[in-house]
């Protein structure tokens, strides 16, 4: 046997022994790392995510009639209640929001086995654990949290995450609700300096079909993270126990939105069919509303709300809080 072949055999033997060593599998196999600072890319759904969604715009969301009704009666003034002011985004929405994302992992100091992947998003300090150690999800009687309980595993280079135990939240910042029975599956893909997150959200109460969204991030080589303290305050004097909301009868936001943007009400109202490409072909045949506003008004700035009605995007929907990655405040981002 040639000396070079001996060396090769020795190397192969050593590699085999190493791979058979207890606990070596998950640490030795090369796997993409997501660790680092990431800046959100807002090209996708920019208007919804940065200026903020219009009240009454549910297009493209596979929502139920119940979700539509809740959104149509939602009043942005709800967010002025002290008990609503410091709510962070739930993990079902947080990756769509603003603020730097930091990802790091925690490993057993002895074995270097991956225990969990942690994420932190600046706005409202959304911090999350993705358990990678095979632990089961907790009992249905355990508390629900904004970020939920997440477990993950790698499928090749793709991180797959399953989340349960979520608090009731939202899927769009104009009152479209998500119940605390919702669950989420995510897939994280890394391609060099880009990170893509796919979310698949299911909710028996408010979604007729899974809601699929993607969010993009790019590496932030000079990443920093600021704290995000939040302490609520009384912003509007109210009678104790008052909960702002619109009545069923005066719930017209979808009509207003459709009229303002000259689109069929059926499109504005959302629903599973509006999430499909085929819906575009259907649009020309859908009836338009009789104008209920200024017929010359198009995509320009929205008119002031009627006096005393109080409808409007408000601090939450309009995103009038702090700018991305910058100052602090209570606005929904």
């Amino acid at each position: 046997m040639q000396p070079s072949r001996l060396r090769l055999a020795g190397l192969l033997l050593a590699a085999g022994v190493f791979l058979l060593a207890p606990g070596a599998a998950s640490t030795a196999v090369a796997q993409v790392t997501l660790v680092g600072y990431w800046n959100p890319i807002f090209d996708e759904d920019f208007i919804e995510r940065i200026p903020g969604p219009n009240v009454g715009d549910y297009a493209g969301l596979p929502i139920t009639a119940a979700a539509r009704k809740r959104a149509n009666t939602w009043d942005a003034s709800l967010l002025t209640l002290p008990e609503h002011q410091c709510k962070p985004h739930p993990s079902t929405y947080g990756f769509r929001g603003v603020g730097v994302l930091r990802i790091w992992d925690e490993r057993d100091p002895q074995t270097q086995q991956l225990i969990r992947i942690k994420t932190h998003i600046q706005w409202q300090a959304q911090e999350r654990d993705i358990w990678m150690d095979g632990r089961p999800h907790p009992s249905e009687l355990e508390p629900h949290t904004w970020q939920g309980f997440s477990t993950g595993h790698f499928e090749g280079d793709v991180l797959v995450v399953r989340t349960t135990h979520l608090k009731a939240g939202w899927v769009r910042r104009n009152g479209v609700p998500l119940s605390d029975a919702a669950t989420m599956t995510e897939r994280f893909f890394r391609h060099d300096d880009l990170l893509t997150q796919v979310t698949i959200i299911e909710d028996p109460a408010y979604l007729s079909e899974p809601l699929v969204k993607t969010n993009g991030f790019s590496t932030a080589l000079n990443g920093t993270m600021e704290p995000y303290p939040c302490r609520p305050a009384v912003e509007v004097p109210r009678e104790a126990g008052e909960v702002p909301h619109h009545g069923i009868d005066d719930a017209l936001p979808t009509k207003e939105f459709a009229d303002r943007h000259k689109i069929p009400e059926e499109a504005a109202a959302g629903g599973a069919s509006t999430a499909l490409p085929e819906f575009m072909g259907k649009l020309p045949s859908l009836p338009m509303l009789e104008p209920i506003g200024d017929p010359n008004e198009g995509f320009g700035p929205p008119p002031a709300p009627p006096a005393g009605r109080g409808r409007g995007a408000g601090p939450g929907a309009a995103g009038t809080g702090p700018a991305a990655g910058g100052a602090r405040g209570r606005g929904r981002q």
């Binding site: 008990e83 609503h84 002011q85 410091c86 709510k87 962070p88 409202q124 300090a125 959304q126 249905e140 009687l141 355990e142 508390p143 629900h144 949290t145 904004w146 608090k167 009731a168 605390d180 939040c230 126990g241 909960v243």
Partner: peptide
């Protein structure tokens, strides 16, 4: 912090809760 945890709430029936869960229900 961030409308979570702190005082915990044991409901008459159902899962363990905190203030935000009671707010949603209220």
């Amino acid at each position: 912090d961030k409308q979570e945890g702190g005082t915990m709430v044991i409901p008459g029936h159902g899962r363990i809760a905190d203030e935000a869960d009671v707010v949603e229900y209220r």
